[in-house]
Computed example of a mutant assay.
Amino acid sequence: MTSYSLQQFINETKQDDKKADYFQLETERVLEVNLDGTVWAKMGAMISYKGDIKFERERMAEHGLGKMFKKAFTGEGTSLMKAIGKGELYLADQGKKVTIFDLQGDTLTVNGNDLLAFEPSVEWDIRFMRKMAGMMAGGLFNVHLQGPGKVAITTHFEPLTLIVKPGEPVMTDPNATVAWSGHLEPEFVMDVSMRTFIGRGSGESVQMKFEGEGFVIIQPFEETYATQDS
């Protein structure tokens, strides 16, 4: 007989008190940060915390004038907050699935909207995709990350990783593209035949082209971004 008791629900959904790592998945959609120091996270991602933790909004020149000017130019909302202290911090972003990477000298480029949190040891920079300007604002900038340190990203539903091989370019929809090997430099291309067939306003006519050797992470969901003003 199936039980629907409140105690059973609590037992099945309560937090895991075993502290395994600095970043750990509390559920597949909630990141737990066992904080003892500092962590950078997406503004607004905090859903709960325990302990002595304070939050600071990213200051304009916190990461240097170069990044400040880039963010001012893009007008994008990937603002960061800094959590400082000791305790358990829970982060989430609109119910999206959370994936953790431990970058040990690796590099990763992430769509700015899909970056959830990273350790302060991770070096980062904003990368422009100038060819995308005027097509769609959401693909204009991404965040380039280099370890060592842990990074947490989010995806709508289960991510799929596509392997890029020399001579075998991979084409993706920009709205479904989450992250890729840090050394890859995608190009934006226009599929004229598809644009003619589907219609001038279709996003599918704009594609990202990855060439070389590496990987691309996509999600089975197309995020909608505002159109860049002309």
Rank of each mutant, 00 (worst) to 15 (best):
H63L: 08
I53D: 06
I10S: 07
A20G: 10
Q8A: 08
F69Y: 11
K14D: 00
E32M: 13
Q104D: 13
K18Q: 00
R29N: 11
L31V: 03
Y90D: 05
T38R: 13
F55K: 13
D16W: 09
I84D: 10
R29M: 07
F55E: 09
F9I: 12
K82Y: 11
K82H: 11
L89T: 04
Q104L: 13
K19Y: 11
M60F: 15
M43A: 14
L103T: 02
D21T: 07
D36S: 10
G75L: 04
K67T: 13
F23V: 02
F9Y: 12
A83W: 01
K18F: 09
G37W: 05
G85I: 06
E28P: 11
S79V: 08
V98Q: 00
I100R: 06
N11P: 05
W40L: 15
E32V: 15
K54S: 15
A20N: 14
F101L: 10
T78L: 15
K70C: 01
G44D: 00
M81A: 14
G44N: 06
D16H: 10
Q15W: 13
D36I: 03
G105H: 00
V33T: 04
G51T: 03
R59H: 10
G87E: 01
D52Y: 04
L35I: 07
T38V: 13
F73V: 05
I47N: 00
T99F: 01
F101E: 07
F9T: 09
L31D: 04
K42W: 02
M43F: 13
L35F: 08
M81W: 13
F73I: 06
K82E: 13
G44I: 07
V30P: 04
F101P: 04
I47T: 05
A61R: 15
E12I: 08
Q104F: 11
S48P: 11
F73W: 10
F69T: 10
Q104A: 13
K42E: 09
T27Y: 00
R29H: 11
F101A: 10
I47A: 01
I47Q: 07
